[in-house]
């Protein structure tokens, strides 16, 4: 009776464990992921660049994906701003 119960349990455990497969390929030569961030003041054009690094990225592709996420991401706490009125020229 015990064997009858253990066998399906072992099969189930095998199925569960085998489902945890990773598709990520580790790049052994990859060390640090670098990205620069350039901030520009919209009114004056003053510009400033800082460099960032991440040690949690595992490959070049992962690093590039991180930069893309930063570019797409909403990490700036921006909100909808009303636009200044502009007096249109007469002509």
């Amino acid at each position: 009776m015990k064997k009858l119960f253990l066998l399906p349990m072992l099969c189930l455990l095998f199925l569960v464990m085998s489902s945890f497969s990773s598709t990520e390929v580790l790049d052994e030569d990859f060390s640090t992921c670098w990205v620069t961030l350039t901030y520009t003041n919209m009114n004056t054009g003053e510009s400033h660049t800082e460099t960032y690094y991440s040690n949690s990225r595992t490959s070049g592709a992962d690093c590039a994906a991180g930069a893309q996420a930063l570019a797409n991401g909403d990490f700036m706490n921006s909100s909808d701003f009303r636009r200044s009125p502009v007096l249109a020229p007469a002509f």
């Binding site: 670098w34 520009t40 003041n41 570019a71 701003f81 636009r83």
Partner: peptide
């Protein structure tokens, strides 16, 4: 100014961010 560009020399990606508004001032 692209939101994301790659530095031709270093190959490091650069992300451009801007301050609030569209630059109009009074």
């Amino acid at each position: 100014i692209e939101k994301l560009s790659i530095d031709e020399v270093t190959g490091i990606p650069n992300v451009n961010v801007f301050s609030a508004g569209d630059g109009s001032d009074f």
